[in-house]
Amino acid sequence: MKQNGAKLAFVAGIFFLCLSLSPRASSQDANATLSGKITDPTGAVVPDAKISVKNVATGQSTESQASLAGLYSVPNLAPGDYEVSVSAEGFATKVTKVTLSVGATQTMNLALQSVLSLGDLGFPVAQTQGSAADQARLDKRSHMLKIHQKLGLIDTFPLVATVITGAGAGGKSTSTNDRYLHAALGSATATLYFASAYYAICAPKIPGTQTRGPIRAHKILAWIHGPGMILTPILGAMAFDQKSKGERVHGIARAHGPVAIVTASAYGAAILAVTFKW
């Protein structure tokens, strides 16, 4: 019985000796543990905070996450200087330094500070939250107005040509070719004009927008050249018909020329009003 006890003591001694000489065990003993609690400015726990512990000498980082109770523990840290970074949603990231000694179990409780939010500035939620639909409306508006602008600029060429050929088509001139050319150019002008107008009229409106600046003059002038572009071809067709019958242009058709000049002038002014704006 006595011998058995001596054997048992010997075996146990060998076991504990091996255990104490094990390099892994000694390394673990030498390593330190950093733990603590993450709270907010009121002292309430902050759950799920992310903790990053960076060894200043080696640059190696160890990541951890606090529990729902705000508790964290980062074991197996070699002794040395560390930079501890704690982050959580709605809080400013807190960075602090700590020195861990051999085998220490150090407690470091950290209080996070709330980050200022747009709500703190008194902005209504509706004003701070954009939407893809709002952006899509703006994109569509810009896209349509760019087409309006391009077609409008292109339309100046047949418009000027129509005005120039008008001199040969009207008055005492009896040239059929000049009349046809003038009518063809006028038709091209009107077609491009109404295509351009479609893109301006149908471009999405942005609610709560007041018209200011040169675009206001551009829109006012549209009330002159718009009806003019409808009236001019009608009067032109009447004048064309009268001339084709060998008659002098008479009656309301005589207004074709003056209406066309006013329309073309208002159109030119509308373009100039916004030419130097994008």
Partner: peptide
């Protein structure tokens, strides 16, 4: 000073979103 330009700026800066 120009609504059209301001709305265009709003669009290019993705101010809707």
């Amino acid at each position: 000073g120009d609504t059209n330009r301001d709305l265009h700026m709003l669009q290019v800066t993705r101010g809707g979103e």
